[in-house]
Design a protein around this nucleic acid. Sequence first.
DNA 1: ACCTGAACACCGTTCAAGT
DNA 2: ACCTGAACACCGTTCAAGT
Lengths: 193, 193
Amino acid sequence: MSAARPYHHGNLRRAVLDQAAAVVHDRGASELSLREIAATIGVTHAAPRRYFPGRQDLLEALAVEGFARLGVRLREAIAASPDYTEQLRSVARSYVEFTTTEANLVEVMFAHKHGAEGHSVADSATAAFSPIVQVFRLGQAQSRLPHHDPERIAVVFLATLQGLAGLVNCGVVPAGHVDDVVADAVAQFPDGP
Amino acid sequence: MSAARPYHHGNLRRAVLDQAAAVVHDRGASELSLREIAATIGVTHAAPRRYFPGRQDLLEALAVEGFARLGVRLREAIAASPDYTEQLRSVARSYVEFTTTEANLVEVMFAHKHGAEGHSVADSATAAFSPIVQVFRLGQAQSRLPHHDPERIAVVFLATLQGLAGLVNCGVVPAGHVDDVVADAVAQFPDGP
DNA sequence: ACCTGAACACCGTTCAAGT
DNA sequence: ACCTGAACACCGTTCAAGT
């Protein structure tokens, strides 16, 4: 009776999250089943409920991790770009690339009102979006933006990218036109000096 | 044995659609149950399957009707506005008003890829969006837009509004700031002469 | 043509019980 | 603390049968 997974899983919470992420990626959130995930991992269907009491809790944890991944991508895109204009282009491409590649996950991330401020999903969303505000702060420092508040123009910019991804994901905008439309969208926003 | 609903419902298809729309509006698509709808209407759970073989068929029919309603709203907004600039503002307000009021329905409308072109949902979406293209055609006739193709700028405009609605619905943009952000978004697009 | 009623496999959730 | 196993009420889907 060697203790080869004798009684409990090594890190059940992480295993559930990874498997759930895979299911969402491949088949969408509506196909996500707690029982199926438990069976795939090799525990009873009630075991994951220690960490995720309800289905909603699992979805929220997936959303938090999704926003974290998105934030990393956006920061990387900005860090790799020399100036304001290039950062704007780069962050736009990264945003749409992520949201179209991870369409099902994004649906989970933006589903429902994630509770009031202070909620974990809302907080992780704000953290993920902050790099975009940073870019417009830089633009404001280098040139004159039409708005005094960088957050306001950042919201419009973010909305444009998010809406674009939605139109691509539901097929209104053909996938082949994405790059052109993103370029059009970026051109809509004020240039650097 | 008077024929007071003797054997079959008067118009079961319409009754199912109306009840389903009510459920989606109040509780969201994930809470939509074919069995519950049938029970509410007063037929067996298998009866609606004559008209909607699967759950997906019902959702697609709801999406088609949703796009039809959206199209009507947008046309009304344009018809009530005298010139290009006012039409742009008006159609933007109408779009965001509809998509935030009918948040759950919009989720159904934009869910998944609605199949290839020629599909009923894709067609009704295109029809609903066409008024927006019309506005930019007018703008192009009255002034000089930066793009030769009104459809391209219409897509970016549409994406901005759709994304804005999404950010409002998931709580990133507070409901009280909607009007201001819409105004900011509209101001981003070229003015009339 | 339109609807019923039973059956099947699945699901989320709850809970007493085991180690 | 962590997991099992049985139970409950629900679901979508299928299908032979009724009128």
